[in-house]
Every structure is written in structure tokens, then in C-alpha cells.
């Protein structure tokens, strides 16, 4: 168990404060404020940014005041700690890779190859399935996706396409 330093206790409030100040600055520098009876595009963002800034300031001050009074526990308890332990970097990288491959393939090779490649990658996470199962799952998904989106819902996307030398 780590001790909570200045950072881990204050950073959420400081973050809110920072985003609030950024919104205020952006609204003030680039958008027209208008008048109070004719508010321009910048008026609402300005009010919102000020509200965020105020929230950040109040919450920072509350924490500072309470930690001086010794009312805060040594460590900030997160409500969903079990959730945190389940994060797996490998799963995340595979999922991002699969989405990236889909984005790359869908416009160059068509919907069916894009889904095939993507499902093949996703099904390979953790090496739980045999190669045959992965190929079958990917082929089945490609067929199902084509039928559902391209045929039934008629989404205008090519099913198969050859990008080189048309």
C-alpha cells in the first residue's frame, strides 16, 4: 500500500480546475461573447468554464482544509478497486489492433475482409481457441456482418474490393 502524497489526493481537483481554465481561456480568446441580452457563441462556454473552475477551486480548498485538520485517511480509497485489477494491457492492445486493422481494411479491401481480419485478431487473445476455431469464427462473423449490415440494413459499404490497379 502506497502512501498518498500531494499528487494522488489533489490531482482530480486540479485537473478539473485546469480544464475549466482552459475552457474559459478558449472561450474568451476565440469566441464572441455578445451582450447579456444577446448572448453570443462564447457566453455559455464561458459560464461553464467558470463553473468548472469554481468546482476545482472549492474541491482543492476542501481537501487542503481537511488534510490540515487531519480528517483524511492516509490513502484515498477507490470504490472500484476490483475493477482495476482486471485491466490487462495485452487485451487492450489486441482490441486496439483489431479496431485499427478494421479501419485500414474496410475502405481498401471491403467489409467482409475487414471483419474477417478483425475477428481473427480478437479471437486470438490469450491463445484460448484453436486455429481452426479462429478461422471458422472469423469466416462466420464476416458472413453474418455482410448479411446483416450490407444486405438487410443496406449500409452503403463495399463487401469485397481490390484496391490495387483498378
Amino acid at each position: 500500500m502506497e502512501e498518498a502524497g500531494f499528487g494522488s489526493r489533489y490531482w482530480p481537483s486540479v485537473l478539473i480546475l485546469g480544464v475549466g481554465l482552459a475552457v474559459v481561456t478558449y472561450a474568451y480568446m476565440t469566441l464572441r461573447m455578445g451582450s447579456i441580452s444577446r448572448p453570443g457563441p462564447g457566453a455559455f462556454p464561458l459560464v461553464l468554464g467558470l463553473f468548472m473552475t469554481a468546482t476545482g477551486v472549492v474541491s482543492t480548498l476542501t481537501i487542503a482544509w481537511k488534510s490540515r485538520a487531519g480528517e483524511l485517511p492516509a490513502r484515498v480509497v477507490q470504490p472500484d478497486e476490483e475493477e482495476q485489477e482486471r485491466f490487462d494491457l495485452k487485451v487492450a492492445l489486441f482490441v486496439i489492433l483489431a479496431l485499427g486493422v478494421f479501419a485500414l481494411f474496410v475502405e481498401n479491401f471491403g467489409l467482409a475482409p475487414a471483419i474477417f481480419a478483425q475477428i481473427f485478431i480478437t479471437a486470438s487473445i490469450g491463445n484460448k481457441l484453436s486455429w481452426t476455431a479462429r478461422l471458422l469464427l472469423a469466416a462466420g462473423a464476416a458472413a453474418a456482418a455482410t448479411l446483416m449490415f450490407a444486405v438487410l440494413l443496406s449500409v452503403p459499404v463495399p463487401i469485397v474490393k481490390w484496391p490495387f490497379g483498378r
Binding site: F102, L111, I115, Q118, T122, I125, A141, V157
Partner: peptide
């Protein structure tokens, strides 16, 4: 097993977003 279920959800996410 989730190994079969989750790829299907991936399919909906990607086509859905793209469409």
C-alpha cells in the same frame, strides 16, 4: 466461453461506428 462471445461484440462496435 468469452473467447467466442467477445469477438462478436467487437464486430458490432466496429461496423456500427463506421456506418
Amino acid at each position: 466461453p468469452t473467447s467466442y462471445m467477445y469477438p462478436m461484440i467487437m464486430m458490432f462496435i466496429s461496423i456500427g461506428t463506421y456506418s
